[in-house]
Simulated assay, not measured.
Amino acid sequence: MMHVEERNTTPLSLGEEKNMVIQLLLINITVFVLLFFTEVIYRMEGNPLARYYDDVLSHLTLSASFSTVLHNPWSLITSMFVHNSFWMIVSNMIWLACFGTMLQNHAGRQHILPLYLLSGIVGAVFYLLGMQFIPSFRELQSFASTTGASACIMALAVGATIVAPGYRLLPNLPIPFWIITLIFLLVNIGTHVVNSHDLTMVPALIGGGLTGLLYMQQWKKGNDLGAGFNRTLHKITHLFHPKTHLHVVK
């Protein structure tokens, strides 16, 4: 008598059978810690803060100038993982955990990373366009830049609201989820206004929000806009993984 025994090694792949929100939190926090210690090293060596910005941060943040972005195209991606203050990353990570977990629980982890990256890029494009065409922003173009995951979180917030608008974050509090999204928007804008009298990030938030709206509306219609990205990522992360072996046992 023969039977087939399936043996499979556990693959190491980004996002499979794991919590994608936790992974994004870890990536953002790791980048913040690395940049923090890099700044400390620059200061210990007697360098002015401006040199740290010129040597490191200016290549990772998203400049308001198209010409600078063309020289640093990767900043469209890196800027959404860079936070330049402790309170900024603490606030954003709390919101990311809140909205990301809610969306992940209701729609699945496979939508978190595609939506995060797509909304970050769209938010960056909206930021650049806003800096070119909004008169009060245009004069800041030569030295302005933006960082942080706010546009990505806005997409997750709007996406979560689309999926379950009446969801209660806390069962004992009769507050629908869209109210939490509105609070995030007001807090985010208010923080920028109070800390730096800056509204240039509003176009990025709009871009992120519209991305979340479109993405999850299409998902509800049965169209997965992130399917192609997930297939490509799966192939890349499984490129060197051993295939399943079938052993015939007599």
Rank of each mutant, 00 (worst) to 15 (best):
M1H: 07
M2K: 12
E6V: 15
R7W: 13
N8A: 15
T10R: 13
T10Q: 14
L12C: 12
L12M: 14
G15M: 03
E16W: 12
K18I: 12
K18W: 12
K18H: 14
V21A: 04
L24V: 09
L24I: 09
L26H: 11
L26T: 11
I27T: 09
N28C: 05
T30G: 05
L34E: 03
L34D: 03
L35A: 02
F36M: 05
F37H: 04
Y42N: 01
Y42H: 02
R43K: 09
R43P: 06
M44V: 11
E45N: 12
P48Y: 08
L49Q: 13
A50M: 13
A50G: 13
R51W: 12
R51G: 09
Y52S: 05
Y52K: 06
Y52L: 06
Y53L: 08
L57H: 11
S58P: 08
L62V: 04
L62D: 00
L62E: 02
S63A: 07
S63E: 02
S75Y: 00
S75W: 00
I77W: 04
M80T: 04
N84D: 08
F86I: 11
M88V: 13
V90I: 12
S91M: 11
N92A: 11
L96T: 01
C98K: 07
C98G: 08
F99I: 04
F99T: 02
T101R: 10
T101G: 10
M102E: 11
L103G: 00
L103Y: 02
H106I: 12
H106F: 11
R109Y: 14
H111R: 07
P114V: 04
L115Q: 03
L117N: 02
G120R: 00
V122D: 01
V122Q: 00
V122Y: 00
A124V: 05
Y127E: 01
F137T: 01
R138C: 10
E139D: 10
A144L: 07
S145D: 10
T146M: 11
T147H: 07
S150D: 01
A151C: 06
C152F: 06
L156N: 00
A157R: 00
G159H: 03
A160G: 10
V163I: 15
V163E: 09
P165D: 03
R168M: 07
L169D: 01
L169E: 02
L169W: 04
L170W: 14
P171T: 10
N172Q: 15
P174F: 11
P174K: 12
P174C: 10
I175E: 08
I175Q: 08
F177Q: 03
I179W: 12
T181E: 02
F184V: 01
L186I: 10
G190S: 05
V194N: 10
V194H: 10
N195W: 14
H197W: 15
M201K: 13
L205D: 00
L205V: 06
L205M: 06
G207V: 02
G209Y: 01
T211Y: 04
Y215C: 02
Q218C: 14
K221V: 10
L225S: 05
A227R: 15
F229C: 08
R231D: 12
H241V: 15
K243A: 14
K243C: 14
T244K: 15
V248A: 14
V248K: 15
K250F: 13
